[in-house]
Design a protein around this nucleic acid. Structure first.
Length: 376
DNA sequence: CCCGTCC
DNA sequence: TCCTCTGACCCAAGACGGG
DNA sequence: TGGGTCCGAGGAC
């Protein structure tokens, strides 16, 4: 998943494209998040003695624990998440998916071996490697989100691409992800792991797409070709060409076709039947629902519904769940208030410089729309 | 800060 | 010789709070 | 599964 080494390349060649912000400065912001990715991570990480958390009937709850508390944490910080669920992966990804399937089968064998040998350490290791978010997990999470009053979107294709559509269609401020290919899809703003920053006392890393292009001195099309050269999920790469050579070649020749004409293909052989054109097309025109067809609404949680679902069905501690619901209600009010507040400073120049206003106590005049002064 | 608990 | 890529290896991937 | 690090094998110069 993602673009190989892209974060490092940006750090090296376009450092100003990333700025670090305090969590607080995102108060009132809406953010799109790839739900499938979160669920997967929760299933892997939320464990006790190496096993997933579960209710008395053995139904897994790790994904619900993770989603519940992370969402509350964000709302509590005035950040409004909208979750996006994966649809069908594009056909081009099937090669990658076949590889993953093979690795799975490998892990299954290893798991059997470890079980027979009574090697608990390896059993856990390979169980973890076999984790996959099932339709049931997804449904559980959708139900919970609905009860919590948090909006979600079911993407026709890749969740990441749908998140980008929401950003660029001005439904949300940015996409919160670890997956750098959000930038390849062209997201105006990308936030890296906005949820962890508070807990770990780390700043949020904010990437600006325009500054990435500016810093690398590339157009969006050239940038896509660069990403393909460096390695994406959709097709192979040219052996012997890594980030350094890739960026040099794209800057010089502008696209992969021209690169191929100008390198010694004996020394740098492209993959057999290389599908770079199809990959390029996928990044340019991914299968997404247009943002204008999507309405995102944050509402108060249905506390009794949440308690019923989480406690009755999944055996969660009622006090904690009710506590969480209270935080949701409180945080939502604050965030709604805050959004209005920041509206005045934010909307003014959205694409380029965003707002330094927060610190500088903004005075803006460019781009008329909504550029009042920040009050307070 | 570390380490156990959450279910 | 220098630079760049590759492949091997290891590790950790959540959130939270009590002690 | 990906990321970080470290080392050896090539081409690049």
């Amino acid at each position: 998943m993602g673009i190989h080494n892209l974060a490092k390349l940006i750090a090296d060649f376009a450092p100003s494209a990333m700025k670090e912000q305090e969590m607080k400065s995102y108060f009132g912001r809406k953010i799109a998040i790839d739900a499938s990715m979160c669920i997967y991570q929760f299933l892997i990480a939320v464990r006790s003695d190496g096993a997933q958390l579960a209710n008395e009937d053995g139904e897994v709850t790790s994904h619900l624990v993770g989603l519940f508390y992370r969402t509350i944490r964000m709302i509590d910080n005035g950040i409004k998440p909208a979750y996006v669920f994966d649809g069908k992966p594009p056909d081009l990804k099937s090669g990658e998916l076949v590889k993953r399937k093979e690795r799975r089968q490998e892990a299954e064998k290893e798991l059997e071996k470890a079980k027979e040998a009574g090697d608990t350490e390896n059993v856990q290791k390979f169980e973890r490697r076999l984790v996959r978010a099932t339709p049931q997990h997804n449904e559980d999470c959708k139900k919970l989100l609905k009860l919590m009053g948090i909006p979600y979107v079911e993407a026709p294709g890749e969740a990441e691409a749908q998140c980008v559509a929401l950003v660029n269609g001005d439904k949300v401020y940015g996409v919160g992800t670890e997956d750098m290919d959000a930038l390849t899809f062209g997201t105006k703003v990308m936030l890296r792991q906005p949820h962890t920053s508070e807990a770990k006392k780390l700043p949020v890393q904010e990437y600006s797409f325009n500054k990435v292009l500016e810093g690398l001195n590339l157009s969006h099309e050239e940038f896509i070709d660069l990403c393909i050269l460096m390695g994406c999920d959709y097709c192979g790469t040219i052996r012997g060409i890594g980030p350094k050579r890739a960026i040099e070649l794209i800057q010089k020749h502008k696209n992969i076709e021209a690169v191929l004409e100008n390198i010694d293909q004996k020394k740098y052989p492209p993959p057999e039947g290389w599908l770079f054109k199809q990959a390029r097309e996928l990044f340019k025109h991914p299968d997404v629902t247009p943002a204008e067809d999507i309405e995102l609404k944050w509402t108060d949680p249905d506390e009794e519904g949440v308690v019923d679902f989480m406690c009755k069905r999944f055996g969660f501690n009622e006090e904690r769940i009710r506590n969480g619901c209270q935080k949701l209600k409180k945080g939502r009010k604050g965030a709604t208030q805050g959004r209005l507040d920041s509206f005045f400073t934010v909307v003014a120049n959205k694409s380029s410089n965003k707002r330094k206003a927060e610190e500088m106590n903004g005075k803006k005049s460019k781009k008329a729309k909504g550029s009042f002064k920040k009050r307070k």
